[in-house]
Every structure is written in structure tokens, then in C-alpha cells.
Simulated scan of single mutants.
Amino acid sequence: MSRLRSTLLSAVLAGVLVLAAYANVYLVAAAIVVVQVLIASAPSLADARGRSVPTPRFAPALLGGLVATTLALFPRAIPAADGAQDVLGVADSGLLAGIIPAVAVTLFAALITQMLRTDGRRELTASTSYAVSLGVTAAIASGWIGAAKSFGGAPVVAIAAAGVVVGLLVWLMPYDRVVMVSAAVVAGAGAGAGVAYLVDSFVTVLFGVAVGSAAALFAVLGQVFGRAWVSGRLHASVGWGFPGAMSIALVAPVVYVGGQLVAA
């Protein structure tokens, strides 16, 4: 049941991103903030004996995500390096401008929250790394914003979202996992090609195959990694909310690169 719920959540989030991309980039950012909240709400770290380790993570992860989202919307808040302004729009789309500051803010916030712990700071290194990992994952989710603002725009977002939804639906089927991940990639390629053919845009069917298949693959990886992170907690809402958000976050670099390739 948790796998079905996480798949449906990913599908809903992907659909919302498509609608938002055709409406307004600020709505895309609002949807991404929801994804980042779900990622920041990940369960606490468990040690080798399965005991929960106090891990301050929500604030560092969410702060990093919000910084990345803000700079994706307003990339000129930080001046780009000389020569970077006109290279495939990387400065204007905001993703590359926002990742480094987001990681820095996440790391700083993680260290501060670790200093405030009063439990002896058990598993300090692992706890800090966990919080930073969540912050980086939340930050890269802003790639959907960069894609929506790129030359590819909403059609690229729609192609990637189609790959996510169809790929995860195929992955949901109870069969050999190696076979199903291959089938998911093929189905995602078909979905991406179909959307590329139907939308009134300059994107080609071959482009749809590439983006759709890659989106399906990374969406499946998001489900796998997300479920592994919440192992043993699948009875709670985090058991499906976190993996569902992970799929969207891991696909973000794919859709971002797709938007840049259209510009190329």
C-alpha cells in the first residue's frame, strides 16, 4: 500500500508541476516547496542496532531547499561569474547559481543544530551527514524551476512529468525488479515521445524519448532510495510521502538539463 501511495503522490506532484509550468513559474516554486518540506520531514537516522539517533534535520534541509528555490526564481540576486551569463542560460535559469549557496546554508544550519543538541551528540558525523544529504536533495529539486524558466519551458516539464508518471506506474507492477525497471524506462520513453509529438512545440520526438526515459529511470531510483531511507517506518505517512518526493527531486536535474539542451 505504501508503494502505491508514494507512486500516486509522485504522479500528483508531477501533474501539478505541469499545470504550474503552463501557468506561472511562481506556482512551480510553490509546488517545489511542498516537495522540499516532504524531504525535510524524513525520519530520523537509525544506527547499526536500529536505534533512532537524534538528528536535527528539518530546519537545515528546508533552509537549503528554500535558498535554492529563491535563487532559482531570482538568480541575479547573486552575480554570475564573468562569461557565465550567456552560456546556455545557466545564470538565468538559476539552478547552478543556487546550489552552492544552498549547500553552504544547509551545512551551516546543520552544524548549528548539532551544537544545540543536549544528548551527548551520539553519532555526530552520521547525523550531520544525514541532514546535509537531505538539504542537498531538497536543493536539487529546484531544477524543475530552472526548466520551467528555460527556453524549453513547459513542454519539457510535461515530457519529464509523463516519463515520471508512466515509469512509476510500470514499476508498481509485481514482477522481477530488473525486468520492471527496464520496462519502466521503455514506457517512460514512449510517454515522453507521445507528449513531444502532441504538444505544439519545437521539441522533437527523439528529445521526448531521451528525457522521458531518463525521467522514468530517476523516478524509479527515487522510489528505491526513498524507501530504503525510511526502511522499517513504512506504516507511517513518511513511508510514502518521502519516497514520493524523492522521485520528483531526483528527476529535477534531468528536466533541467533537458531545458538547457533545447536551448543548445
Score class of each variant (00 low, 15 high):
150 S>V: 07
254 V>Y: 01
151 F>N: 05
233 R>H: 12
89 G>V: 07
245 A>G: 04
193 A>W: 03
84 A>V: 15
78 I>G: 14
46 A>D: 09
74 F>P: 09
12 V>W: 05
10 S>E: 00
81 A>G: 15
67 V>P: 05
70 T>C: 12
257 V>H: 08
12 V>G: 10
187 A>T: 04
137 T>Q: 10
159 I>K: 01
81 A>V: 15
12 V>A: 15
210 A>G: 07
75 P>M: 12
136 V>C: 10
212 G>H: 00
132 V>N: 04
73 L>A: 08
162 A>P: 04
212 G>N: 07
127 S>L: 05
153 G>T: 11
148 A>R: 09
12 V>Q: 09
224 V>E: 04
102 A>E: 03
155 P>G: 05
191 A>V: 09
100 I>S: 10
116 L>V: 06
109 A>S: 15
57 R>S: 09
227 R>C: 06
120 G>S: 06
137 T>M: 14
25 V>Y: 11
67 V>D: 02
146 G>F: 06
235 H>Y: 14
50 G>E: 12
234 L>V: 13
214 A>T: 11
263 A>M: 11
153 G>Q: 08
192 G>W: 03
132 V>Q: 00
127 S>P: 10
94 G>Q: 10
97 A>K: 04
120 G>T: 04
161 A>F: 05
153 G>S: 11
88 L>D: 10
262 V>P: 04
237 S>F: 11
12 V>M: 13
7 T>F: 02
114 Q>I: 12
209 V>A: 03
183 A>N: 01
260 Q>E: 13
92 D>E: 15
96 L>R: 09
92 D>L: 11
107 L>D: 05
186 V>G: 02
150 S>A: 14
9 L>M: 11
167 G>L: 00
71 L>T: 04
193 A>S: 12
110 A>H: 08
86 D>M: 13
154 A>P: 01
61 A>V: 05
160 A>W: 02
116 L>T: 12
37 V>F: 02
241 G>S: 02
234 L>K: 05
87 V>L: 12
86 D>I: 09
182 S>H: 03
219 A>M: 07
125 T>G: 15
227 R>S: 14
43 P>L: 08
192 G>T: 06
